[in-house]
Design a binder for these strands. Structure first.
Length: 417
DNA sequence: TCTGGGGTCCTAGGACCC
DNA sequence: TCTGGGGTCCTAGGACCC
């Protein structure tokens, strides 16, 4: 059996752990740049605040209902996530950490209800984060079970096992609510008169394959209790890595862009070194604000092949700026920029280039290692390449940032007794 | 009237997830 | 004034091979 443990309103719950005064209060967490609403407490959901809405459109509701607003605080959420996951790891045979706030657990077919309740109790008691648990035979069904646990149970635990029970649930599940069926596929199915999961699994399989490809067919199999997705416990190695940001203040200044792009290139290199791989291609993009119809629009992007796969700060900056130079156009107001590195190769499998004209790669490598050492202990970008800049006028807005309670010693919680 | 059969690799675009 | 960031997988079609 597979259990899906999913944290409730994760980011909002993280903020609340350290602000017990906000119990039962509406909370929202905003995306980078304080742009969109990306997490809501139950109270905020009840007001009708939707996921992904631009925050400025809800300003009045925030005021009217006294909604507490937070900028994203990823160091905090990442750390809280690690705490939750370590508890789950200790309480299961095998675990797949699927995202920052959910994990699939391999669980014995014993007293499942007791198991789920126990996990839920431990996590809330040891971290302060409420979770729900759904248990079933396949991942897709476990997802469904979790959904029911969240919406329709008091205990926050739901076991989806008996055949008749499953069919009843499928009849009440809209196709769009199934994990892996997105809005496009849901619309397509609706057009053919298929509305719920039971109707979906009753269809001819060759038709499903034709319309929804093997991806859809696998989902249908999983709904029928046939396992197609195994627990994946070692997917840490990424195939692409991206660092991109919207700017707090849009800019047309080339220097701002080069500061941003070189900083993103360094971020990508750091992520590469962390997973011990190197990139063979790098893509750079810059674009104007697509939501502003009165502005001249431009989307510039270029992909560069590297002579030899690398994860070095300086080489990556060099290539990124070469790319930026070729796509930059004067007279546009840029809102967002980013760097994507791809064709990632494990460091010990890099193909050397016969015509490599960079004969001091080892020296660069040592410098990057030292950068990591200093920045890991002293703070991000404490030591940096000059072109990354110091004034950082383009940096994102985070006006409602909560303290990094668990990862920065000077921001640790003070308790008065 | 009528033109084979069997492969690989790469890329762009679509669909999906959190 | 004001709209996030980071991923994965699959397919069709092109270009190529014998």
């Amino acid at each position: 059996m597979i259990a899906l443990v999913d944290c409730n309103n994760f980011y909002a719950s993280c903020e609340r752990v350290f602000r017990p005064d906000l119990k039962k209060q509406p909370i929202v967490v905003l995306s980078n740049n304080d742009g969109c609403i990306i997490a809501r407490s139950n109270e905020a959901k009840a007001i009708g605040i939707r996921m992904g809405e631009p925050a400025y459109k809800r300003k009045e509701d925030f005021k009217k209902h006294n909604v507490h607003i937070f900028s994203t605080n990823f160091p905090l959420y990442g750390d809280m996530s690690n705490r939750v996951m370590s508890i789950l790891r200790k309480n299961s045979k095998d675990i797949e950490i699927y995202s920052i706030d959910e994990a699939f657990l391999d669980c014995q077919d014993g007293n499942l209800k007791e198991y789920g309740v126990d996990i839920k109790k431990k996590v809330i008691q040891w971290t302060g984060i409420p979770v729900c648990v759904g248990i079933a035979e396949t991942k897709v069904l476990a997802k469904l079970a979790n959904h029911i646990a969240k919406k329709h149970t008091k205990s926050g635990v739901f076991i989806l096992k008996e055949k008749q029970n499953i069919l009843d649930v499928l009849k009440k599940t809209n196709v769009g609510e199934i994990w892996g069926i997105g809005s496009r596929s849901a619309k397509l199915l609706n057009n053919y008169g298929i509305y719920n999961a039971f109707e979906l699994i009753s269809l001819d399989e060759s038709w499903i394959k034709r319309k929804l490809s093997v991806v859809g067919l696998r989902i249908v199999h999983e709904l029928k209790g046939i396992k197609c997705f195994d627990l994946d416990n070692k997917r840490q190695i990424k195939k692409n890595i991206c660092t991109s940001r919207s700017f707090g203040t849009p800019t047309s200044d080339y220097n701002h862009l080069s500061q941003a792009i070189s900083t993103f290139a360094v971020r990508c290199s750091e992520k590469l070194r962390k997973q011990q791989s190197s990139a063979s291609v790098i893509k750079i993009f810059i674009y104007t604000n697509p939501f502003n119809p009165r502005q001249k629009q431009y989307y510039g992007n270029i992909t560069l092949q590297l002579d030899q796969a690398t994860n070095d700060n300086q080489i990556m900056i060099h290539e990124a700026l070469k790319g930026l130079k070729s796509i930059y156009k004067e007279g546009y107001i840029y809102k967002k920029a980013g760097v994507i590195v791809g064709n990632l190769i494990p460091n010990n499998q890099i193909q050397l280039n016969l015509f490599d004209n960079l004969n001091n790669r080892n020296k660069y490598k040592k410098i990057s290692t030292i950068f990591d050492k200093i920045n890991n202990s002293m703070g991000k970008d404490k030591i940096r390449i000059a072109v990354q800049g110091f004034d950082r006028k383009w940096q994102m807005k985070q006006e409602q940032l909560s303290p990094a309670y668990t990862t920065r010693i000077e921001e640790i919680l003070t308790i008065k007794i």
